[in-house]
Design a protein around this nucleic acid. Structure first.
Lengths: 349, 349
DNA sequence: ATCCACTGACTAAGCGATTAGTCATAGTAT
DNA sequence: ATACTATGACTAATCGCTTAGTCAGTGGAT
């Protein structure tokens, strides 16, 4: 602060009362202090005149409550694109909305998580009342570290059950099943899966759901048809090239997000593979870029903002000590059919 | 906090010393207190064992410094899409990066700005050391209100000069000139301008730059060729329809951001207007969606992340009391030529 | 033996706000 | 006249941390 903010004492002095009286006037009475109407008005006038606003730090010292919630973005790989990532941004948007409704600020922690031993206690710094963890990598000990310190938490797309952390996610199993079923109905069964980072919570779930579906259909596919890319889209080009050179080609590729699918489309173009005639491609997320691809992507839509809103509600509940049941909420994905999928061509059947 | 965080006193007790001694050990000595090596070690061990981390609120009360900076998003119209807006997100990303480098947290204020009288003092609440204002509407008194309370500020795309607030922006004049010159070189002079909200700082600047360019060329264009849309892209379709029905049609449309340009492209498709053969379209921002449009958008690229980084540096300087000169920094836009612009067709010349 | 400097650590005040507890004064009931 | 109850407002402790100021003890110099 450059220009010192007026304190409660300043208001009190201006109004000619004690700071206690001023405090009582300015926030309903919680002591048995009584104030006459005239005095009350004098205090209110003084506060108004000085543009007084209580100091949040001092207040939170007493209340042990900061009226702000923290957000930690999980990091896949070395990526530092938090809010420019449409998945993260969509969720954060939902968090901001609900936080705003209840008068909370949102503090984004900028320090990278190293490990529980080195990092966890930094987040118990009295800056926030609780923390929302968004998409922590599977091999990270964020949830474990924070929850073992007793920090109120809520999580998105994390293995929260393990640490009794209320968690919101979109049903990865259902999403993959919807995608697989859509492709199957078109006539595909040679379906390759291009996943995101292995250490993200969603990846093993989606892989296992993919495998189950194939098993349901009695399909036995080459193991190398599961390719690990990055959610940034990196690696999708190489994966497509590799799979296209192999002896057996898939007729469809299910990408685990739209960026990966976009990478596939771009590489398909440069390999002169016609989509969807020769190869159907599906995305996941229904990000803004999905409908803008050529051809527009068939994809699985996730209600990102709703995830953020719901997670915030859960954290607020936890802060109020309201029991949360069930601990994990799975929202439903939707399939959005556009132009990147079609029946497989004859010679690929 | 559920599980009470250990206090300095807890550490001191565990180590068998006074809280003062513990404090001195844990943060370089600023009192003349001396500590023996043995005692020092005992304190450090105790802190480690208890996972002690100082309470930020208590600390900031003493230091009058919170190590966190605030962000307020200006709001155009009733939009509440802060971080899902790629412009805002890009800037915020830059803010997060620099803040992280110097160990600051970033607090996003979620309460909408009403007016200086009602809102300003809320932001002098000791929660943040300073505030970054991003793209406040032209008719808002955010900067005036906050700066008159002596809150350290830095701004993006705001009329900061007026209130001695260090401000970063991309040179709107240059950007429009580059766009206009590109179109002129292709042979266009019948150029319509589709702007964002009138009350955004950039809008009048861009309009005047557009007008100046036309004047340079001795062009006299119908006034209604300037259409006010929304930066969300809303209104672009109607504007195109209207302009296309008029007696004189432009050969090119310069949209003030990519969302507006995308709206124009979509409407052009449904009106069967061929882009760029019949109509050249330019965007602005070079958002992710620009290159994905059909045809890919020629656009003016703004270094969003760099804006955020620079603005944060300016705020940090101001917090340190370093004089800032010059007060306003204008970054250079770049033109990205893609496929949505070409020479105008013969019959349109 | 006396003085001084240094070592090692403590006590207490204060940051700004909240709140339990105290205390005059005035008015009312007995 | 006495006891009691509102009324109106104040004092002081506390939240967790920092830091200016104080102080006892030890060892070396004079």
């Amino acid at each position: 602060m450059n220009q010192k903010a007026p304190t409660l004492q300043d208001v009190a002095t201006t109004a000619g009362v004690s700071s206690n009286t001023a405090s009582v006037v300015l926030n309903g009475a919680k002591s048995n202090t009584r104030v006459s109407e005239a005095t009350r008005q004098r205090v209110l006038d003084a506060a108004q005149q000085l543009r007084y606003h209580p100091n949040a730090a001092a207040r939170s010292l007493v209340h042990r409550k900061t009226d702000s919630i923290g957000v930690i973005f999980g990091v896949a790989g070395s990526s530092t694109d938090y809010v420019t990532n449409p998945y993260m941004a969509g969720i954060l948007q939902g968090v901001l909305k609900v936080a705003g409704e209840v008068g909370y600020c949102v503090t984004i922690f900028t320090q990278p998580w190293v490990n529980a031993n080195a990092s966890a206690h930094r987040f118990r710094d009295g800056r926030t009342d609780g923390i929302i963890v968004i998409a922590s990598p599977e091999n990270s000990d964020i949830l474990e570290g924070l929850s073992s310190l007793g920090i109120p938490l809520a999580a998105v797309a994390c293995p929260g059950e393990r640490y009794s952390v209320p968690t919101v996610d979109v049903d990865n199993r259902t999403g993959i099943e919807m995608a697989m079923d859509h492709l199957r109905e078109l006539g595909h069964y040679k379906i390759a899966l291009f996943t995101g980072e292995e250490n993200m919570h969603s990846t093993p779930q989606r892989i296992s759901s993919y495998r189950n579906r194939l098993k349901d259909w009695d399909c036995n596919l080459p193991a190398q048809w599961i390719h690990t890319c990055a959610y940034s889209g990196a690696g999708a080009d190489a994966a497509l090239r590799k799979i296209w050179q192999s002896s057996e080609r898939p007729t469809a590729i299910l990408a685990c997000n739209d960026a990966i699918a976009a990478g596939v489309l771009a590489e398909a173009r440069s390999l002169s593979i016609k989509v969807p005639e020769e190869l159907s491609v599906m995305g996941y997320d229904d990000a803004e870029i999905a409908s803008l691809q050529t051809p527009p992507l068939t994809t699985i839509s996730q209600p990102l903002q709703q995830i953020g809103e719901l997670t915030t509600h859960l954290l607020l509940k936890r802060l109020q000590g309201v029991p949360i049941e069930p601990l994990t909420v799975l929202l439903d994905p939707k399939i959005v059919v556009r132009k990147s999928t079609s029946v497989p061509s004859e010679d690929n059947q």
